[in-house]
Design a protein around this nucleic acid. Sequence first.
DNA 1: TTGTAAGCGTTATCAA
DNA 2: TTGATAACGCTTACAA
Lengths: 357, 357
Amino acid sequence: MSTSPHSHNTLAAVPAARPTIADVARVAGVSKATVSRFLNHRDKLLTKDIATRVEVAIAALAYSPSPMAQALKRGRSRLIGLVVADVTNPFSVAVLRGAEKACQDAGYLLMLFNLGNDSRRESEAIEALTAYQVEGFILNTLGRDAKAAAEAARHGKPVVLVDRRHPGMQADFVSLDNAGAVRLGASHLVEAGYRELLFISEPVKNVSSREEREAAFRAFISESAPAVAGLQGRTFEHTADDPQALDAALRDLRQRAGPRLPGVLSSNAVVTLRVVAAMARLGWQFGTDVGLVGFDDTEWSPYIGPGLSTIAQPTDELGRIAAGCLIERLKGLELPPRQILLSGRLVPRGSSVHAVN
Amino acid sequence: MSTSPHSHNTLAAVPAARPTIADVARVAGVSKATVSRFLNHRDKLLTKDIATRVEVAIAALAYSPSPMAQALKRGRSRLIGLVVADVTNPFSVAVLRGAEKACQDAGYLLMLFNLGNDSRRESEAIEALTAYQVEGFILNTLGRDAKAAAEAARHGKPVVLVDRRHPGMQADFVSLDNAGAVRLGASHLVEAGYRELLFISEPVKNVSSREEREAAFRAFISESAPAVAGLQGRTFEHTADDPQALDAALRDLRQRAGPRLPGVLSSNAVVTLRVVAAMARLGWQFGTDVGLVGFDDTEWSPYIGPGLSTIAQPTDELGRIAAGCLIERLKGLELPPRQILLSGRLVPRGSSVHAVN
DNA sequence: TTGTAAGCGTTATCAA
DNA sequence: TTGATAACGCTTACAA
C-alpha cells in the first residue's frame, strides 16, 4: 500500500487555482485587454482570427471571469440581496424560490439574509449586503424599521418591496391584492351562510399587509351588511403567547352568533394553525361549529379536519415578478415606483361548508 | 412647488459612494497601510496616538472594509456556499436557518443556491459559487451527481455534507442517526401493538439517507421478529405521480395484516402527506385502520386526524453543526473526515394508538 | 484592430 | 513603528 506525502490531510486536494485572464492571454498569445474585449464586446472589435484564438484558449483553460474582480472594477457585482423576515415562513420561501429562478435566468445570484423575525436587524442586513456590493434589494420584511429604508435609499440602490410596504420608501411594490383577496374570502363565507364573522390577525399596527387586510374586512362588512340580513363582523388580534385569548375569542364569536352561523377569516397560515389548535382544544368541528377561510394555501390545508378553505397566493409569481422588477431597474429602467398587485384564488373546502345533519 | 432637476427619477437618491481605506487614511493623516494595520492587527503594531487617530477617522466616516476587495487580495471572501436540493423542503429550510445563524456569528455570509430538485444542476451550482470565491460548501443535495463532488474537491475547498452522503467524497458529514431513528419509530409501533409493518419511502437507490433508513428498517424487522410474535415488515417505494399505487399498497398491507394491526413508517414529511391523502381517499382512520409514525415533526403534524406520531429531527442543530464544522475547517482544522450523527426524538400522538372501541 | 498602463479597494513586502 | 509600492483579476482610456 502506497502512502502519499500528506496523507494525514486528505480533505483538501491540490489547490488548483482558477485560471485568470492573464493565463488566457498568455495561452492565446494576446494581451489581457484583448481577452477582456472578447468577453465584453464579443467579436465587435476583434479580428476573426484573434477572436477564435481567444475563444479556444478560454475553452482550453475552462476560464470564467472572476465576478469579484469585475465587481471591484465596474462597481457591479451581479448580486442581488434578498432580506426576509423569516425563512421559516412558507410565503418567504416561495418568494425566495421565485426570485431565485428569475435571478438565475438573468445571470444574477441571490444573497440571502434572514432576519429570523428580529426586525431590528434589518439595517444590519442592508449594511452587510451592500458591503458585498449587491446591486439591489428585494425586501420581504415587516418594514417597521424606518432606518433600514433610509439605509437602502442612501446607497442609491434599487429596492423592490414584497408583501409589505415600508413607510416613506420610494420603491416598486409587489404584493397580493389584499383588498380583493379579503373580499373573496369574506364573501365566500357569506355565501356559504356564515353571518357572524371574525377576522383574526397577528398584531396589525405598522405592518402594511395586515392593515390592508383588516381595513378591507371592515369595509366589506359595512358595504355588505345592508344587503345581507344579520351580517356582522369584528376583528381580533392574536399574539403567539396567549392561546387562551384565542379560545375565548372563538367562544365569544359563537355566543354572539346565536342562531346565526359563525365564521372566521384568518389572515395567514400561522394564524390558521393557531385557530386549528384552538378548535381542537374546544372540541369543535370546522364548518359546523365555526366556518373558516384562511389566507395561504399550504400543502397541509386539504387534510386538516374536513379540509381548510383557503385563499391561495400566487407566491411563485410574486417572487419572480419582484426579481423581474428589480432586474429591469438594474438594466436602467427609469419609471416612477410601480405597484403590482396579483389576485388571490379561493380554494373552497369543507371548513366553509355547514354540515346539515 | 419646486422641482428638482431629475424629478422623473426619484427612485435612486444621491450615489453616496462608500468610503474607502484611502478616505480614512486622508482624514487620519496617515497612510493606507497604517489603516490596514489597524484593521487587521488591531493595536499590536501601532502607536497609541496613531491608533486612536485612525479609530476616530473610521468612526467619523462609518468606514468598513470592502469584502470584495479583501477577497480579491486575500483569496478569502467570508462567504459560504449552501446548496440545497429544494428550498421548499422544510428540512432544507431548517438547515438553512441553523447554518445562517452559525455563519453570521462567525462573520460569514451565506450564499444560497437552490437546485429546485434538479440534481443535474449541482455542478453548475458549485461552479457559480466558486466563481464568487466562497470559502467552502454546505451541501444538502441528493449526491447523485458524482461530477459535483469532484468539482468541489478539485477547487480544494472544504465541504460539509448534510443528511446525504456523496459517493467517494471525503468530507465531514452531519446527519440524523438514521438507524437509531428508524428503531425508535419502528419499536414504538411494535410496542403500540402493530405487527404488520410497511416502510414507505421515495425511490431509495443512490440516496444515502433513504438507503440507510430502509436498511435499518429491514434490520429491525429481522432482529425483532424472533422475539415478537407475528411481526412482519415490508418496504414500499412510492413516486409522486402514482397515488393509486399507494392506495393499493395500503390495502395490501391491511389484507396481509389480517387480524393483526397494520402500521406504516413513512420516511419523510412528503411521504407522510401522501399517506395522509391516501388514507383520506380510502376513508380510513389513523391509529385504528392503520397506525403511522412518520419522519419529520412538522407544525401541522399535531392537527392531522388524531395527531400524527413523528420522529423529530434536530434540524436546527444539524444546520448549526454543519456550518460549525465548515468554519472549523476554514480556521485551519486538519482532521480526517468526521461523521456527526444526532439522535431523533419520538413524538407519540394519536396515529400510533389503536382505539379500542 | 490591438497593446500599454492605470486603477478599482485591499493587503503584504520592503525600506526607512 | 510607519510609509511607499506592488499585487490580487479585471476593465478601460489612451496610444500605437
